[in-house]
Write a protein that binds this DNA or RNA. Sequence first.
DNA 1: AAGATCCTCAACCGCTCCTAC
DNA 2: AGTAGGAGCGGTTGAGGATCT
Length: 267
Amino acid sequence: METFSSKSSSSSSSDDDIKLRRGPWTIEEDNLLVHYITNHGEGLKRTGKSCRLRWLNYLKPDVKRGNLTPQEQLLILEFHSKLGNRWSKIAQYLPGRTDNEIKNYWRTRVQKQARNLKIDSNSAAFQEMIRCLWIPRLLQKIHSSSVIQPSIQSSRSTPQGFSLEKNNSSSSRSSSSHSSSIYESPNIISECPKIPREIGDSDLNSFVKAHFPFDDNSYDINNFGQLATGNFNDVMEYDQMIGDVLADSFWSMDEFFYQTQDMSNCK
DNA sequence: AAGATCCTCAACCGCTCCTAC
DNA sequence: AGTAGGAGCGGTTGAGGATCT
């Protein structure tokens, strides 16, 4: 009897995955293994576990390298809010990205911002900040790059049919049977508090306290930057003003802080 | 220029779950 | 039903590169 496991690996779970064989080894498999060891030797002084990890996280041909795109960052934020620290689950929605990579991104980028703000990254307040500040900015960034490079489209899809790229056509979006909530997210912008353009640090302090009631009020408003010197409907205008300095594929909240500081300098 | 500090990310650890026997 | 072993997962570590002083 031969059995197959449909249990997904950390890096992939699409329907066309090669099914892992389980159960007793067949003569053919034994011969294949003997042939392989005869030709290549036992070789490495590594455990199977270590080899597996090296393959999945680094050597596998479809592993993507390089910085996460704004789209990918958006997906991570979105799915983390739904799934929590279930990295392998989140990785299923980012083809070519490993659970390890996503986990590292969350710890080194997202949690870093929470530390800067002196708030708990698991707190409702931080989640709200991501929803109201970070995600809308990523959406604006994605939108502005799709204007610059409208040809960027991909048929690549995630296990549940989420398109990784923003669909420029509202009609085609509405025709999809799997419309992703992520790209409905621009509504977040209107749902979230508008931050007055002309606002001093002390006013900003009050504003943030009013709209983002942190558990710990000792957050450092200086690290929050001049974040609130405009509202988010102005971001595209700002992007045009400073040129396409964000044309590269990576964008982080750090840059967000720097940009907003620059923006206030330009006034 | 050099030492200190920070940051990133690949790899390891230990636990849980699943499967074969 | 119980046990052993392997796979997969999330948390953590540490080497090495980057940046700061």
